[in-house]
Amino acid sequence: MDKVPISLRNPRLLGVTLADYANVQAGIAEGLDLSALLQNEGVDVRAWDAASALWADRIAEDDEGSLEYAYDAFFEAALDRLWRAIPPLDIDLRAWLDFVRLWSAREDPLGCLAGLGMRPADIIRLNKHWARRLRADLALAREAEAILLREPGPMPSISPSPTLLRPLAPAERPPVDEDLPLPVAEDDEDEDDAQTSTRRPRLFVDPPGWERPEREPEREPEQMDAALSLDQYASLCAELAVFPASHEAIFQRHGLDPGVNRDAIGAAWSERLQRDRAQYERWQELYRTYHDYWTKRGAPAQ
């Protein structure tokens, strides 16, 4: 069934927008390196696994269909942006039409593509490319008709160029329209208590900038997370996400010298935010504010 055109949504989950998710998924479908894709989109690698799983669930559970519609549109646009030169198929009409007829007649078209160093999305993009040119040029369309009346020649010698990633300019990025709430996990309880149940937040990833320690903290969590206020912790996480190469200077600027058990402080804050949904939501708000600030600033504080 055809989809009804509706306004494209672009909400955000764990710092990853729907457009970000679609762009990365398009690159994955092209066989591109995930780390390079995340860097190109400006997506925090530490949040990707959790955010991508959440997005897959949200799209599948969206009865309205607006998320799926927007995702499909973003995905298709992302595939189009991954255009690469594949001479002579992108410049020689006869080579393209001969190729299409020879390739489509193969017993294993996908295997044939792989052997030529091509991908299914290349065919889609080339089809669009030539369709646009034929619509715009009547003489070229007549030439195509004449070519198709003749038997195809030998399979063209194809030289696909590598795919080059290009980050979108800020003006090219769709605006974020909302931040979606995280799912919650319900505590086990009797059905009689279902109407008065309390919910606890599920933190799917540790806040950016931290990894869970392999050993127990040397001090109690209450003491460890007291080393930084919520505001300071949010700023620290944002700075580490935006300027990972300057992590040591950032830690020290926040008073976390090498002798301080940084892992324990991060684990304590992670535990605290899992227990307190209100604080976690406040942390998200602060983190986004600081992330935007440091991104616009372009350099860490000295």
Rank of each mutant, 00 (worst) to 15 (best):
T196S: 10
T196F: 03
S197R: 15
S197V: 09
R199T: 10
R200I: 01
R202F: 03
R202P: 01
L203P: 06
F204Y: 11
F204V: 01
V205C: 12
D206R: 01
P207K: 05
P208R: 06
P208S: 09
W210V: 03
E211A: 04
E211P: 05
E214D: 14
E214H: 07
E216G: 01
E216I: 04
P217F: 05
P217M: 11
P217K: 03
E218F: 00
P221Y: 07
P221D: 14
P221H: 05
Q223F: 14
M224S: 08
D225L: 02
D225N: 09
A227W: 13
S229L: 06
L230Y: 02
D231F: 00
D231E: 15
Q232Y: 04
Y233Q: 14
A234W: 08
S235M: 07
S235Y: 07
S235Q: 13
S235A: 13
L236C: 10
L236A: 07
A238C: 11
A238I: 03
A238F: 02
A238V: 07
E239Q: 13
L240T: 06
L240F: 03
A241D: 15
A241T: 09
V242E: 15
V242N: 12
F243T: 09
F243R: 07
A245L: 13
S246R: 13
H247I: 06
E248S: 11
E248L: 05
I250F: 06
I250M: 13
F251M: 12
F251P: 04
F251H: 14
Q252A: 15
Q252H: 14
R253D: 11
H254Y: 15
G255N: 12
G255S: 11
L256P: 07
D257V: 00
D257M: 13
P258K: 11
G259P: 12
R262W: 09
D263Q: 13
A264Q: 09
A264P: 10
I265M: 10
I265S: 11
I265H: 11
G266M: 07
G266T: 06
A267L: 03
W269Y: 02
S270R: 06
E271C: 00
L273Q: 12
L273G: 08
Q274A: 05
R275M: 02
A278C: 04
A278V: 01
Q279I: 00
Q279L: 05
Y280P: 03
E281L: 00
E281G: 00
R282P: 12
R282E: 15
W283F: 10
